[in-house]
Every structure is written in structure tokens, then in C-alpha cells.
Design a protein around this nucleic acid. Structure first.
Length: 493
DNA sequence: ATGTAC
């Protein structure tokens, strides 16, 4: 196997000081680093353990030192090193005594995934995949700095930042059911456009309905396997069915929000005299002006991301209509669900035998609420929320459903994807985009990309096995496998 | 992830 050149590729068989406490559960004990207020927990199989970076474990321990952290500083099986907090990290902080930190959310605020089902079967697109991909590639601007034809006015942008994807539906980019089939109905309450800088407004205005770059994609897929027939029926999924996935985030607007507020919260660390093991953990007391300003801006960026995915989905539906020569009812391109992978949310959880309000930071982690939870859409209340896990390019994606254990062990959270094992720079040295594209084509998977280098950076070999990651959360009962989706064609940013 | 460094 080809290998890259940087430390992310080194296989570390032993990480001193961490302990296995159960199958797939590793503990970072209080003594691992000074100042830890709670232990760390890393949910990981033996096999994935060989890819675990020591620096990611150190980050789990660093997060455990933050004021007001509850139960454990956690990392999902797809964890790897991130800015301050690990990607794949989950941490909940007391809403009164705790902190809020942009590092716990990441730069791509509400990077997330939506899944669309259809009345079509795989065979219905035989010989049409390439035309569909070409049209999708044209309909959704992609790549770094891409812009759309939509120009939201200042008042429209403020509405999007405040209320999320409802604006898009009211403007005709979708239907009411798209909102009820979306995490939080496409909105985090508390979005505050006045905390979003003029620069972030300016970057966001021309980017509604654009895909972006990196691991973001549009994917034509089919249901290859059903694991849980009851949940699959609730989600309106069946064997052989054509599905469609959108993976993207808040583009330049979210990035700018993170940049702006990191600067502000770095100053707040001194003001509130918070002792940090790593400057990248910049944060402020949850109820402070600075933390609430960040939260309002972060919620705005999250709302922008949901609107972005809503508009992208609408344009893709139009493409399907034209290419398949079918109307909306015939196509049945209904939104199954949309999940955020990078957000902080104010939620109620059971802690120490009582209910508590906490700011749950999920950075590369999916909410995974179980059956019966009031925040699960009514249509899915009997089985749990859909948990959408995109594969890396050319590998399967998974649909899971939220399970009760998630509420007990991970503040209602599960993994979010495969997780990188090689950096982008390593990947560009190791792979050539044209060759990867050819290899995938040989497997029956067509790829379109804004630039070949993106294909190299996102080559299947730079990610862990999504199947292995998903199996860990399934075994732990954090989320249960419902269906496996295989790619037919991909549009990369 | 990102007007891919300020």
C-alpha cells in the first residue's frame, strides 16, 4: 500500500496512559494530563485504534480541562486531530458554569449532510448517470470561492441568519415537508445577524446554493442493503432504490464567523482568566457577552448552511426533472433528513440523576436522538432520528437511527464519517486525481470535480473505512445501522 | 473547511 509522508500516517500501536474499559471504549484517565476535570472517553475498535493519533488523545485530554465540562470529554471512532478540539469530538458544558468554544464546532459551521429518497430504482438511471452528473455539476457551482446567481438582499440574509431554511422554502426553493424532515427544522434558535461581521455577510451573500470544496459532494447512490426493515420503512427507503446525498456547509460565511469570534474569544480568555493547555481552545463563560455573541453568530452560520443545502437540493430536483423527464410526484425526491456535523446546541440531558441544560459541542459528530425524543420528527418518532454518515469518495454511505445508549454515553451523539488518516498535502503527494478518477470509473463510479487535485485529496485511501467506523457505533448502541448506500456518481467541489 | 498565510 502506498503511504504518505506525514506523521498522520504513522501507526501507533501503543498510546501510553490510556486504558481500555470495555469493548470499543477507551478511557483517558484523569491523571493523563494536569487539570483534567473529567476523564476522556474514546469510542474505538481495536482495528481503528492502530490509526489513532496521540495528538488527538492529547486534545481529548485538553478539552477535559475546560470549565463546566460534564461526564466525559469524548471522541468518536472517526476522531482525528483538529483545531483545538479533535474532529469527531463531543463535549457538553454546563449552561451556567461552563464555557462555549469555537474550537468545539470548527471552521465549517454546520457542515452537514442531507439524504433524498426517490421513487426511482438504480436501473432507471442506467446509461443516464453521466448526463445527470454533468447537469448537476452545472446546476450547483462548486470549488473554492464559487458563487451562485442568487443574491440575497441584506434583509433576506438577515432572515436566513435568524430563521434558517424556512426562507428558502417560502421563496419556492422546496416544500414545507423539507422543513419537518430536517434537524431543528433547518434552524438553531438564537441566530443573531448583528454578531455576524460585515465581512461574513459579504462573503455569504453570493454563495447561497454553492457546494464548496474539499470533502463536500453531491452523490447519486442506491440502497444496497437494509439492516433494519422497520426503520427503513419509516425513512421510506428500500432495497435497490435510487437516493441522492448533499454534503456541504456554511461556506465563506461560517469560516469568517469562526475567524472573527476566535479572535474575540482569545481576548476573553485573558479577561476571564481561563487557564488553557492550548490557545486553540479559546472560549468564554457560557453566559458571558463574548460567548453569547459567538453563539448567536454560530447559530446564524448554521442557519445559513441549512439554507444552502436546501437551495442546492432544489436545484438538483430540477435537474432530475429535466433529465428524467418526470414531474415532482413521479420522482418522489423527498428529503429523508438533514443532519449537522459541526455545531454547538443548547440541549437538556440527564446528568447525575437530574435534568441539566448543557451546550453540546459536536465537531465532526452527528446528533443521534432515540425513539420518543421530542426533537425527532413525528414521522420518525417511533424509531429514532436518521443519522447520516457519508462515505468518502467511492465508498458506501450509511443511514443509521438514533438509539437510547447515545443519551446515556455520548450526549445523544454518534460518529459523522470515515475520518481522515492522511493529510491533504500527503494525499496530493501520494495520489494523482486523474488515476483515482479512472480507478473509480472502473468500479462503475463516475466523478466530476472542479479540479483533479480535489480528487487526489479525497481519494478513498486517505480515509478510514466508513464501515468499520459505523460498526463501532452500532455495536455500542449509540446508533443502529438501517441501510447501506452505494455510490453511482459523484460531483466533487 | 477556507478569497488554501496577514
Amino acid at each position: 500500500m502506498k503511504r504518505g509522508f506525514d506523521r498522520m500516517d504513522t501507526e501507533g500501536p501503543e498510546i501510553e496512559g490510556i486504558e481500555r474499559v470495555d469493548n470499543d471504549i477507551w478511557q483517558v484517565p484523569l491523571g493523563y494530563k494536569p487539570g483534567m476535570r473529567v476523564p476522556g472517553r474514546i469510542y474505538l475498535s481495536d482495528k481503528l485504534f492502530t490509526n489513532l493519533e496521540k495528538e488527538a488523545v492529547d486534545q481529548v485530554a485538553n478539552v477535559a480541562t475546560l470549565p463546566g465540562i460534564q461526564k466525559f470529554s469524548m471522541a468518536m471512532p472517526d476522531a482525528h486531530v483538529g483545531y483545538g478540539f479533535p474532529i469527531g469530538g463531543v463535549a457538553a458544558f454546563d449552561a451556567e458554569e461552563g464555557i462555549i468554544s469555537p474550537g468545539g464546532v470548527g471552521f465549517d459551521i454546520n457542515c452537514g449532510v442531507r439524504l433524498i429518497r426517490s421513487n426511482l430504482e438504480k436501473s432507471d438511471v442506467d446509461g443516464k448517470v453521466n448526463n445527470l452528473l454533468d447537469s448537476l455539476f452545472k446546476a450547483v457551482p462548486s470549488g473554492v470561492g464559487s458563487k451562485s446567481r442568487i443574491r440575497a438582499s441584506e434583509s433576506e440574509l438577515e432572515e436566513i441568519f435568524t430563521n434558517g431554511s424556512r426562507w428558502a422554502v417560502e421563496e419556492g426553493y422546496g416544500v414545507e415537508a423539507d422543513l419537518t424532515h430536517c434537524e431543528g427544522e433547518g434552524c438553531i434558535e438564537g441566530g443573531d445577524p448583528s454578531q455576524v461581521s460585515a465581512k461574513a455577510h459579504k462573503r455569504g451573500r453570493p454563495q447561497l446554493g454553492t457546494l464548496g470544496s474539499g470533502n463536500h459532494f453531491l452523490e447519486l447512490q442506491y440502497v444496497d442493503e437494509i439492516y433494519d426493515p422497520v426503520a427503513a420503512e419509516a425513512f421510506n427507503l428500500k432495497q435497490g432504490q435510487l437516493t441522492f446525498m448533499v454534503h456541504c456547509g456554511s461556506r465563506g460565511a461560517g469560516h469568517q464567523v469562526c475567524t472573527d469570534h476566535l479572535r474575540n474569544l482569545t481576548r476573553a480568555v485573558e479577561k476571564y482568566k481561563i487557564d488553557l493547555p492550548d490557545k486553540q481552545l479559546a472560549c468564554a463563560p457560557a453566559q458571558s457577552e463574548e460567548a453569547q455573541a459567538y453563539f448567536g453568530a454560530m447559530a446564524s452560520a448554521a442557519n445559513y448552511a441549512w439554507t444552502n443545502r436546501q437551495i442546492i437540493m432544489h436545484h438538483c430536483r430540477e435537474v432530475f426533472g429535466q433529465q428524467m423527464n418526470m414531474d415532482a410526484d413521479e420522482l418522489g425526491l423527498d428529503l429523508v433528513y438533514d443532519v449537522a456535523h459541526n455545531v454547538a446546541k443548547l440541549e437538556e440531558h440527564d446528568v447525575d440523576g437530574g435534568k441539566k441544560q448543557v451546550y453540546v459541542h459536536r465537531k465532526g459528530a452527528t446528533r443521534s436522538f432515540p425513539a420518543g425524543h421530542p426533537d425527532v420528527p413525528k414521522a420518525y418518532r417511533a424509531v429514532g432520528q436518521p443519522v447520516l454518515i457519508p462515505g468518502s469518495m467511492g465508498t458506501p454511505s450509511y443511514v443509521l437511527c438514533g438509539k437510547q445508549s447515545a443519551m446515556d454515553v455520548s450526549f445523544g451523539s454518534a460518529c459523522h464519517g470515515a475520518g481522515r488518516v492522511m493529510s491533504r498535502s500527503g494525499a496530493k503527494h501520494t495520489f494523482r486525481g486523474e488515476q483515482i478518477q479512472k480507478d473509480l470509473s472502473g468500479q462503475g463510479i463516475s466523478v466530476r470535480a472542479a479540479h483533479p487535485s480535489v480528487i487526489a485529496e479525497e481519494a478513498p485511501g486517505v480515509y478510514k473505512s466508513s464501515s468499520e467506523v459505523v460498526d463501532v457505533v452500532d455495536r455500542l448502541g449509540i446508533a443502529g445501522k438501517v441501510a447501506k448506500l452505494m455510490p453511482l456518481g459523484v460531483v466533487k467541489g
